[in-house]
């Protein structure tokens, strides 16, 4: 039984959660339940809470999140497919006081853009890289990505991914954690309220690392593409928990600062 009228609860001063002021009033084009929307809003909330709207520049990819600049009210540059880390490198070097972040899907980052992300991380660029891994090319109609699990059915692997034919699924985040330029490498998700809060903390830490010039921060968000996977959004989250998390376990892979350049000078001394 309610002992207070709902009208007395729904008042400005009682708000405990609302849309971030950094998100524009545009309806996102994403399919219902898509992980991209959740990830966008976490970036928005971090930018809002750090008060860095005017100092932040995003670089958007090719993929479903190509229009990220339509939703986040910060400066943005669109990059060619896979090239966001290269573009972000240029921006950060020209404008070192800005907060620069990339936002990429798994097709964009782990396939056509594998070279750019590995080398940006290896150079230790002071940028934040957000990697939305939904194990598929969402935008183009659900083709296999490097990250697609073995046995997973996609438009181009109708009988399921087969290693002999299609190669092994790639744990790009594990590769990146080996690179001396990275300071923070973590794998998170956004399917529950608790997971969303953890991912937000990770994004906050990544932006703070950039401020403190610690090196490259890389955040994988294990995600769903319910349209590409051909299940409803709730089932997609369940499928992700049951299968994706086994191959892509959540948690921090690295949390320090990039390697000290001086440690690399010894090899050609004398």
């Amino acid at each position: 039984m309610a002992d207070i009228d709902i009208k007395d609860i729904i008042k400005e001063e009682n708000i405990v959660y609302k849309k971030s002021s950094i998100l524009l009033d545009k309806v996102m084009h994403y399919c219902p339940g898509c992980s991209h929307g959740v990830t966008h809003k976490l970036i928005a909330e971090v930018i809002e809470e750090m008060g860095i709207q005017d100092q932040t520049i995003g670089v958007s990819p090719v993929g479903c999140s190509v229009f990220a600049y339509n939703y986040l009210n910060v400066d943005f540059q669109e990059a060619a497919h896979g090239r966001a880390p290269a573009v972000a490198t240029a921006i950060k070097r020209l404008l070192p006081d800005k907060y620069v972040f990339t936002y990429q899907g798994d097709g964009d980052l782990a396939s056509i853009g594998a070279a750019e992300i590995l080398h940006a991380c290896n150079r230790g660029e002071h940028i934040v890289c957000i990697f939305v891994n939904n194990a598929i090319y969402g935008m183009t109609g659900g083709q296999m990505a490097p990250t697609t699990l073995v046995g997973m059915k996609t438009a181009t692997t109708p009988y399921g991914r087969d290693v002999d034919r299609n190669g092994y699924p790639m744990k790009i985040t594990e590769l990146i954690a080996q690179l001396p330029g990275t300071c923070y490498v973590t794998r998170q998700s956004v399917e529950t309220a608790a997971a969303v809060r953890k991912t937000k903390k990770a994004i906050r830490k990544a932006f703070e690392n950039q401020r403190d010039k610690k090196g490259t921060s890389f955040i994988e968000v294990v995600s769903t593409c319910n349209s590409g996977w051909k299940v409803d959004p709730v089932k997609a989250n369940k499928w992700m928990e049951d299968h994706m998390f086994k191959f892509y376990p959540l948690g921090d892979l690295k949390d320090s600062t990039r390697d000290n350049p001086a440690d690399y000078e010894q090899y050609i001394k004398d």
Binding site: I15, Y17, Y30, G33, G37
Partner: peptide, 14 residues
């Protein structure tokens, strides 16, 4: 509100 991808939920508490 936390999980809504489209940020269309406002939450109030007293």
């Amino acid at each position: 509100g936390t999980v809504c991808p489209d940020s269309v939920i406002t939450v109030y508490k007293v």
